[in-house]
């Protein structure tokens, strides 16, 4: 019984590390800044949530469930708010997108963004 849970926990962590490395590979392979932000979303979302789940399975207790649950919420908030803020900051800094990116909808918005994402 105990060993089944331990195997599950290890499987979660290894799967998480695999997903994380795919996201990081995306950071190298994807062609422009905005596409790379999506690679980060993979690493920061699924790639960190799975190891956290594995950690909880290995040390199950109410206290740990609360701590790891909070850590997961903060991690997802970091990924979401940080990603949006970084995308916006990169856009304001004039980071170029790949040439084939269609941007008709955004051209209209440039220079008149409302309140930010922070």
């Amino acid at each position: 019984m105990n060993t089944v849970v331990e195997v599950l926990s290890t499987a979660c962590v290894v799967a998480g590390a695999l997903v994380f490395s795919v996201g990081a590979l995306g950071l190298l392979r994807l062609r422009d800044f905005y596409a790379r932000l999506n690679g980060i979303a993979v690493s920061a979302g699924l790639g960190t949530a799975l190891p956290l789940l594995g950690l909880l399975l290995r040390f199950p207790s109410v206290e740990n469930a609360l701590k790891i649950g909070l850590a997961l919420v903060v991690q997802l908030a970091t990924a979401a708010v940080g990603g949006t803020a970084l995308a916006r900051a990169g856009y304001l800094a004039g980071t170029p997108a790949a040439s084939e990116t269609r941007r008709d909808a955004l051209a209209e918005a440039s220079g008149e963004e409302g309140d930010g994402a922070g």
Partner: peptide, 18 residues
């Protein structure tokens, strides 16, 4: 906006309230 950013494949670049 945060759900869009958290979904791989889409990123929120700008938000306007009005």
């Amino acid at each position: 906006a945060n759900m869009v950013t958290l979904t791989p494949g889409t990123v929120t670049v700008a938000i306007r309230m009005d």
